[in-house]
Simulated scan of single mutants.
Amino acid sequence: MRRASAQSIRQSLEDIAKEIGIPGMQVAFARGEHVNLYNYGVKKYDTTAYVYNETRFQAASLTKVVAAYTFFRLMDKGLIELDKPLWDYYQYDRLKNTPNGDKITARMVLTHRSGLLNWQGNVPSDAWRATPLTLQFEPGTDYMYSGEGFYFLQETLEHITNKSFQTLVEEEVLRPMGMKNSNIVWNDSLENIAAYGHYELTKPRKLGKYRKSNAAYTLYTTAEDYMRFIQKALLEGFGLKKSTHKLMMQKAAEAKKGENGDPTDKYVPCALGLRMQFNEKGTAYWHTGSNPGFRCFFITYPQRGETLVAFMNTDQGFPAMKKLLQLFFGKDQTFWAYDWREGELD
Protein backbone atom coordinates (compact mmCIF):
# COMPACT_ATOMS: atom_id res chain seq x y z
CA MET A 1 0.00 0.00 0.00
CA ARG A 2 1.34 3.41 -0.95
CA ARG A 3 1.72 5.58 2.11
CA ALA A 4 -0.51 8.64 2.06
CA SER A 5 0.74 12.03 3.18
CA ALA A 6 -0.37 13.49 6.49
CA GLN A 7 -2.20 16.21 4.61
CA SER A 8 -4.14 13.76 2.46
CA ILE A 9 -5.04 11.69 5.53
CA ARG A 10 -6.36 14.77 7.31
CA GLN A 11 -8.46 15.62 4.27
CA SER A 12 -9.78 12.07 4.14
CA LEU A 13 -10.66 12.17 7.84
CA GLU A 14 -12.56 15.41 7.27
CA ASP A 15 -14.40 13.85 4.33
CA ILE A 16 -15.37 10.80 6.40
CA ALA A 17 -16.52 12.94 9.31
CA LYS A 18 -18.64 15.16 7.09
CA GLU A 19 -20.15 12.22 5.21
CA ILE A 20 -21.23 10.43 8.39
CA GLY A 21 -21.93 13.47 10.56
CA ILE A 22 -19.26 13.29 13.23
CA PRO A 23 -18.77 16.45 15.33
CA GLY A 24 -15.29 15.51 16.56
CA MET A 25 -12.79 12.74 16.08
CA GLN A 26 -9.42 11.75 17.48
CA VAL A 27 -7.23 9.21 15.68
CA ALA A 28 -3.82 7.67 16.36
CA PHE A 29 -1.97 5.46 13.89
CA ALA A 30 1.28 3.68 14.65
CA ARG A 31 3.71 1.94 12.34
CA GLY A 32 6.41 0.45 14.49
CA GLU A 33 7.27 2.94 17.22
CA HIS A 34 6.28 5.97 15.14
CA VAL A 35 2.84 7.36 16.05
CA ASN A 36 0.87 9.90 14.02
CA LEU A 37 -1.95 11.83 15.71
CA TYR A 38 -4.91 13.37 13.92
CA ASN A 39 -7.73 15.52 15.26
CA TYR A 40 -10.89 16.72 13.59
CA GLY A 41 -13.77 18.93 14.57
CA VAL A 42 -15.14 20.07 17.91
CA LYS A 43 -15.82 18.73 21.37
CA LYS A 44 -19.37 20.07 21.16
CA TYR A 45 -21.44 21.02 18.12
CA ASP A 46 -21.84 24.71 17.33
CA THR A 47 -18.87 25.76 19.47
CA THR A 48 -15.26 26.59 18.72
CA ALA A 49 -14.01 24.09 21.33
CA TYR A 50 -11.83 22.14 18.91
CA VAL A 51 -10.61 18.60 19.44
CA TYR A 52 -6.87 18.47 20.14
CA ASN A 53 -4.40 15.83 21.34
CA GLU A 54 -5.34 16.21 25.01
CA THR A 55 -9.13 16.18 24.53
CA ARG A 56 -10.63 13.38 26.63
CA PHE A 57 -13.00 10.96 24.99
CA GLN A 58 -14.99 8.21 26.63
CA ALA A 59 -13.29 4.94 25.75
CA ALA A 60 -16.50 3.02 26.44
CA SER A 61 -15.92 -0.74 26.19
CA LEU A 62 -12.24 -0.26 25.36
CA THR A 63 -12.13 0.05 29.16
CA LYS A 64 -12.63 -3.72 29.32
CA VAL A 65 -9.17 -4.34 27.84
CA VAL A 66 -7.61 -2.16 30.54
CA ALA A 67 -9.61 -4.10 33.14
CA ALA A 68 -8.36 -7.39 31.72
CA TYR A 69 -4.74 -6.23 31.92
CA THR A 70 -5.34 -5.12 35.52
CA PHE A 71 -6.64 -8.60 36.30
CA PHE A 72 -3.52 -10.22 34.83
CA ARG A 73 -1.28 -7.93 36.85
CA LEU A 74 -2.99 -9.17 40.01
CA MET A 75 -2.94 -12.76 38.80
CA ASP A 76 0.83 -12.49 38.38
CA LYS A 77 1.00 -11.39 42.01
CA GLY A 78 -0.75 -14.57 43.07
CA LEU A 79 -3.88 -12.79 44.26
CA ILE A 80 -6.40 -14.44 41.94
CA GLU A 81 -6.60 -17.37 39.53
CA LEU A 82 -8.02 -17.48 36.04
CA ASP A 83 -10.11 -20.63 36.48
CA LYS A 84 -11.13 -20.50 40.14
CA PRO A 85 -14.76 -19.38 40.62
CA LEU A 86 -14.98 -15.72 41.55
CA TRP A 87 -17.54 -16.70 44.19
CA ASP A 88 -14.71 -18.42 46.08
CA TYR A 89 -13.10 -14.99 46.48
CA TYR A 90 -16.15 -12.78 46.80
CA GLN A 91 -19.78 -13.69 47.38
CA TYR A 92 -21.43 -11.08 45.17
CA ASP A 93 -24.79 -10.16 46.67
CA ARG A 94 -26.49 -9.92 43.27
CA LEU A 95 -25.76 -13.62 42.67
CA LYS A 96 -26.66 -15.00 46.10
CA ASN A 97 -29.92 -16.55 44.85
CA THR A 98 -28.78 -17.28 41.29
CA PRO A 99 -28.38 -21.00 40.45
CA ASN A 100 -24.88 -21.68 39.06
CA GLY A 101 -23.77 -18.11 39.80
CA ASP A 102 -21.01 -19.60 41.91
CA LYS A 103 -19.45 -21.23 38.83
CA ILE A 104 -18.41 -18.05 37.03
CA THR A 105 -14.63 -17.69 36.62
CA ALA A 106 -12.45 -14.84 35.41
CA ARG A 107 -11.79 -16.76 32.19
CA MET A 108 -15.54 -16.89 31.54
CA VAL A 109 -15.88 -13.16 32.17
CA LEU A 110 -12.95 -12.29 29.89
CA THR A 111 -14.36 -14.43 27.05
CA HIS A 112 -18.01 -13.41 27.59
CA ARG A 113 -19.10 -16.88 28.62
CA SER A 114 -20.40 -16.05 32.10
CA GLY A 115 -24.06 -16.39 31.15
CA LEU A 116 -24.81 -12.90 32.40
CA LEU A 117 -26.66 -10.32 30.33
CA ASN A 118 -24.80 -7.26 29.07
CA TRP A 119 -26.65 -5.18 31.67
CA GLN A 120 -29.51 -6.10 33.96
CA GLY A 121 -31.15 -2.90 35.14
CA ASN A 122 -30.53 0.79 34.56
CA VAL A 123 -26.75 1.03 34.90
CA PRO A 124 -25.21 2.85 36.81
CA SER A 125 -28.12 3.64 39.16
CA ASP A 126 -28.42 2.42 42.73
CA ALA A 127 -31.44 0.39 41.63
CA TRP A 128 -29.26 -1.37 39.03
CA ARG A 129 -26.65 -2.26 41.66
CA ALA A 130 -29.41 -3.77 43.82
CA THR A 131 -30.95 -5.81 40.97
CA PRO A 132 -30.44 -9.59 41.30
CA LEU A 133 -28.66 -11.17 38.35
CA THR A 134 -29.98 -14.02 36.23
CA LEU A 135 -28.06 -16.42 34.01
CA GLN A 136 -29.03 -17.04 30.40
CA PHE A 137 -27.10 -20.33 30.31
CA GLU A 138 -24.80 -22.36 32.52
CA PRO A 139 -21.49 -20.49 32.86
CA GLY A 140 -18.89 -21.60 30.36
CA THR A 141 -21.27 -23.31 27.94
CA ASP A 142 -22.12 -20.49 25.50
CA TYR A 143 -21.28 -16.94 24.42
CA MET A 144 -23.07 -13.71 25.36
CA TYR A 145 -21.41 -10.31 25.53
CA SER A 146 -21.59 -9.07 29.11
CA GLY A 147 -20.67 -5.88 30.91
CA GLU A 148 -22.17 -7.32 34.10
CA GLY A 149 -19.44 -9.97 34.09
CA PHE A 150 -16.72 -7.32 34.06
CA TYR A 151 -18.37 -5.45 36.90
CA PHE A 152 -18.51 -8.69 38.94
CA LEU A 153 -14.81 -9.13 38.25
CA GLN A 154 -14.18 -5.52 39.30
CA GLU A 155 -15.86 -5.96 42.68
CA THR A 156 -13.97 -9.22 43.18
CA LEU A 157 -10.63 -7.47 42.57
CA GLU A 158 -11.65 -4.67 44.92
CA HIS A 159 -12.55 -7.21 47.61
CA ILE A 160 -9.35 -9.25 47.46
CA THR A 161 -7.07 -6.18 47.40
CA ASN A 162 -9.14 -3.93 49.67
CA LYS A 163 -8.58 -1.19 47.10
CA SER A 164 -10.96 0.69 44.83
CA PHE A 165 -10.92 -0.17 41.16
CA GLN A 166 -9.82 3.39 40.50
CA THR A 167 -6.76 2.87 42.71
CA LEU A 168 -5.98 -0.48 41.10
CA VAL A 169 -6.07 0.94 37.56
CA GLU A 170 -3.97 3.93 38.58
CA GLU A 171 -1.39 1.73 40.32
CA GLU A 172 -1.26 -1.12 37.82
CA VAL A 173 -1.82 0.67 34.50
CA LEU A 174 -1.99 4.44 34.26
CA ARG A 175 1.02 5.47 36.34
CA PRO A 176 3.40 2.65 35.28
CA MET A 177 2.63 3.31 31.61
CA GLY A 178 2.79 7.09 31.86
CA MET A 179 -0.83 7.55 30.77
CA LYS A 180 -1.07 11.09 32.11
CA ASN A 181 -4.16 11.97 30.08
CA SER A 182 -6.34 9.11 31.33
CA ASN A 183 -8.78 8.68 34.20
CA ILE A 184 -10.85 5.62 35.06
CA VAL A 185 -13.50 7.81 36.68
CA TRP A 186 -14.70 11.39 36.21
CA ASN A 187 -13.19 14.23 38.13
CA ASP A 188 -14.00 17.90 37.71
CA SER A 189 -10.59 18.74 36.23
CA LEU A 190 -11.94 17.16 33.03
CA GLU A 191 -14.74 19.71 32.70
CA ASN A 192 -13.01 21.87 30.09
CA ILE A 193 -11.15 19.16 28.20
CA ALA A 194 -13.77 16.43 27.82
CA ALA A 195 -15.64 15.83 24.58
CA TYR A 196 -19.42 15.90 24.67
CA GLY A 197 -21.30 12.94 23.27
CA HIS A 198 -23.89 13.60 20.57
CA TYR A 199 -27.12 11.91 19.53
CA GLU A 200 -26.24 13.05 16.02
CA LEU A 201 -24.19 15.85 14.48
CA THR A 202 -26.31 18.80 15.64
CA LYS A 203 -27.66 17.32 18.90
CA PRO A 204 -25.15 17.24 21.76
CA ARG A 205 -25.87 15.29 24.91
CA LYS A 206 -25.14 16.46 28.43
CA LEU A 207 -21.52 16.05 29.46
CA GLY A 208 -21.17 12.47 30.68
CA LYS A 209 -19.71 12.31 34.18
CA TYR A 210 -19.16 8.81 35.58
CA ARG A 211 -18.21 9.38 39.19
CA LYS A 212 -18.18 5.65 40.07
CA SER A 213 -15.72 3.50 38.17
CA ASN A 214 -16.95 0.58 36.10
CA ALA A 215 -14.55 -1.90 34.50
CA ALA A 216 -16.81 -2.09 31.46
CA TYR A 217 -16.96 1.51 30.29
CA THR A 218 -15.77 4.47 32.44
CA LEU A 219 -12.28 5.20 31.07
CA TYR A 220 -11.69 8.79 29.92
CA THR A 221 -8.61 8.94 27.71
CA THR A 222 -7.02 10.15 24.49
CA ALA A 223 -6.13 8.26 21.34
CA GLU A 224 -2.46 8.90 22.11
CA ASP A 225 -2.70 7.50 25.64
CA TYR A 226 -4.70 4.47 24.56
CA MET A 227 -2.16 3.82 21.81
CA ARG A 228 0.52 3.83 24.51
CA PHE A 229 -1.48 1.23 26.44
CA ILE A 230 -1.81 -1.03 23.39
CA GLN A 231 1.85 -0.81 22.53
CA LYS A 232 3.04 -1.48 26.05
CA ALA A 233 0.44 -3.91 27.40
CA LEU A 234 -0.59 -5.87 24.32
CA LEU A 235 2.44 -5.70 22.06
CA GLU A 236 5.29 -5.60 24.59
CA GLY A 237 3.68 -7.42 27.51
CA PHE A 238 4.91 -4.66 29.81
CA GLY A 239 4.54 -5.56 33.48
CA LEU A 240 3.45 -9.14 32.81
CA LYS A 241 5.22 -12.47 33.05
CA LYS A 242 6.09 -13.72 29.58
CA SER A 243 3.80 -16.71 30.04
CA THR A 244 0.94 -14.46 31.16
CA HIS A 245 1.35 -12.14 28.18
CA LYS A 246 1.32 -15.13 25.84
CA LEU A 247 -1.78 -16.49 27.57
CA MET A 248 -3.60 -13.16 27.26
CA MET A 249 -2.99 -13.01 23.52
CA GLN A 250 -3.94 -16.59 22.66
CA LYS A 251 -7.27 -17.66 21.22
CA ALA A 252 -9.34 -18.58 24.27
CA ALA A 253 -12.91 -19.14 23.05
CA GLU A 254 -15.25 -18.84 20.12
CA ALA A 255 -17.48 -15.83 19.63
CA LYS A 256 -21.08 -16.19 18.50
CA LYS A 257 -23.22 -13.90 16.37
CA GLY A 258 -26.92 -14.09 17.11
CA GLU A 259 -28.70 -16.90 18.86
CA ASN A 260 -27.55 -19.65 16.53
CA GLY A 261 -24.12 -18.41 15.49
CA ASP A 262 -22.83 -17.51 12.05
CA PRO A 263 -20.20 -18.95 9.66
CA THR A 264 -18.15 -15.76 10.10
CA ASP A 265 -17.75 -16.41 13.85
CA LYS A 266 -14.55 -18.31 13.08
CA TYR A 267 -12.85 -15.10 11.95
CA VAL A 268 -13.37 -13.23 15.25
CA PRO A 269 -12.68 -15.50 18.24
CA CYS A 270 -12.02 -14.21 21.73
CA ALA A 271 -8.67 -13.83 23.39
CA LEU A 272 -8.72 -13.05 27.12
CA GLY A 273 -10.29 -9.61 27.43
CA LEU A 274 -10.11 -8.65 23.76
CA ARG A 275 -11.06 -9.89 20.31
CA MET A 276 -9.07 -11.42 17.49
CA GLN A 277 -9.43 -11.12 13.73
CA PHE A 278 -8.16 -13.69 11.24
CA ASN A 279 -8.03 -12.41 7.66
CA GLU A 280 -5.86 -12.21 4.55
CA LYS A 281 -3.23 -10.12 6.35
CA GLY A 282 -2.86 -12.37 9.38
CA THR A 283 -3.89 -12.04 13.02
CA ALA A 284 -5.11 -8.79 14.54
CA TYR A 285 -6.53 -7.86 17.93
CA TRP A 286 -9.37 -5.39 18.34
CA HIS A 287 -12.24 -4.06 20.39
CA THR A 288 -15.11 -1.68 19.79
CA GLY A 289 -16.92 0.58 22.23
CA SER A 290 -20.19 2.48 22.40
CA ASN A 291 -21.17 4.64 25.32
CA PRO A 292 -24.11 7.04 24.89
CA GLY A 293 -22.85 9.65 22.44
CA PHE A 294 -19.55 7.93 21.65
CA ARG A 295 -18.22 5.27 19.29
CA CYS A 296 -14.63 4.04 19.32
CA PHE A 297 -12.39 1.15 18.35
CA PHE A 298 -8.84 -0.05 18.07
CA ILE A 299 -7.16 -2.70 15.98
CA THR A 300 -3.54 -3.84 16.08
CA TYR A 301 -1.54 -6.17 13.83
CA PRO A 302 1.43 -7.30 15.97
CA GLN A 303 3.33 -8.99 13.13
CA ARG A 304 2.94 -5.95 10.88
CA GLY A 305 3.64 -3.45 13.65
CA GLU A 306 0.57 -1.39 12.80
CA THR A 307 -2.10 -0.09 15.17
CA LEU A 308 -5.10 2.21 14.75
CA VAL A 309 -7.11 3.89 17.55
CA ALA A 310 -10.15 6.06 16.84
CA PHE A 311 -12.60 7.96 19.05
CA MET A 312 -15.77 9.67 17.76
CA ASN A 313 -18.27 11.73 19.75
CA THR A 314 -21.59 10.69 18.23
CA ASP A 315 -24.03 7.77 18.39
CA GLN A 316 -23.89 7.78 14.58
CA GLY A 317 -20.12 7.21 14.35
CA PHE A 318 -19.91 3.45 13.90
CA PRO A 319 -20.06 3.42 10.04
CA ALA A 320 -16.82 5.44 10.06
CA MET A 321 -14.97 2.42 11.43
CA LYS A 322 -14.73 0.55 8.12
CA LYS A 323 -13.83 3.72 6.23
CA LEU A 324 -11.03 4.42 8.70
CA LEU A 325 -9.78 0.84 8.49
CA GLN A 326 -9.64 1.08 4.71
CA LEU A 327 -7.96 4.48 4.83
CA PHE A 328 -5.09 3.34 7.03
CA PHE A 329 -4.75 -0.33 6.05
CA GLY A 330 -6.05 -0.43 2.47
CA LYS A 331 -9.03 -2.12 0.85
CA ASP A 332 -7.29 -5.39 0.04
CA GLN A 333 -8.48 -7.27 3.12
CA THR A 334 -11.67 -8.25 4.90
CA PHE A 335 -12.28 -6.28 8.08
CA TRP A 336 -14.20 -8.85 10.07
CA ALA A 337 -13.79 -6.62 13.14
CA TYR A 338 -16.32 -4.34 11.46
CA ASP A 339 -18.30 -6.63 9.18
CA TRP A 340 -19.05 -9.15 11.93
CA ARG A 341 -20.03 -6.45 14.45
CA GLU A 342 -22.00 -4.20 12.11
CA GLY A 343 -25.23 -3.10 13.73
CA GLU A 344 -24.27 -4.38 17.17
CA LEU A 345 -23.08 -2.30 20.11
CA ASP A 346 -20.55 -2.99 22.86
Rank of each mutant, 00 (worst) to 15 (best):
L153P: 07
P99N: 12
Y143A: 09
L95V: 11
K331H: 11
P85Y: 02
S8P: 00
E33K: 14
E236A: 13
F150W: 10
R175L: 10
Q316D: 13
Q91V: 05
Y92I: 01
V173T: 11
L207R: 03
D339C: 05
E236G: 01
K212I: 14
P132I: 06
K180G: 06
N162Q: 15
K331T: 09
H112L: 03
F328A: 06
Q326W: 01
P139L: 12
D262R: 06
S146H: 10
L86Y: 08
L324A: 08
E81Y: 09
T111N: 07
T47S: 13
D83V: 00
W340N: 14
L308R: 02
R3I: 14
K266H: 00
Q333E: 15
F71R: 08
D262Y: 10
D332N: 15
A127D: 13
W336D: 06
N192S: 14
A28W: 10
K322R: 10
Q333T: 10
A310P: 03
I160S: 12
A6E: 14
I16K: 09
F229G: 10
T222H: 04
Y267K: 07
P292V: 02
Q91E: 15
T300W: 05
A194G: 02
K64Q: 05
E172D: 07
R3Q: 15
E344F: 15
L190N: 04
L327H: 03
L234W: 11
L95E: 02
E54N: 12
S114A: 15
L219N: 05
I104R: 04
Y92H: 13
E224W: 01
L157R: 09
Q26D: 13
H159K: 14
N279V: 10
L234K: 00
K242E: 15
G178M: 09
D142W: 05
K246W: 13
P85K: 01
M179I: 02
P263K: 04
H34C: 00
G21N: 09
M312G: 08
V109T: 03
Y210H: 07
H112C: 08
M321V: 11
K180C: 07
K322S: 02
H112N: 13
Y90C: 04
G147I: 02
G317Y: 08
Y220V: 01
F318R: 12
N260W: 13
N162D: 13
P269V: 12
C270Y: 14
P176K: 09
F29E: 02
S146K: 03
F297S: 02
G273M: 09
T167C: 00
N53V: 00
S164L: 04
Q26W: 01
T111Q: 07
I16V: 14
G197A: 12
T218N: 04
R10E: 15
T334K: 13
T55C: 03
P139K: 12
Q11A: 13
S290P: 03
N53A: 14
N291E: 13
Q58A: 07
L153K: 11
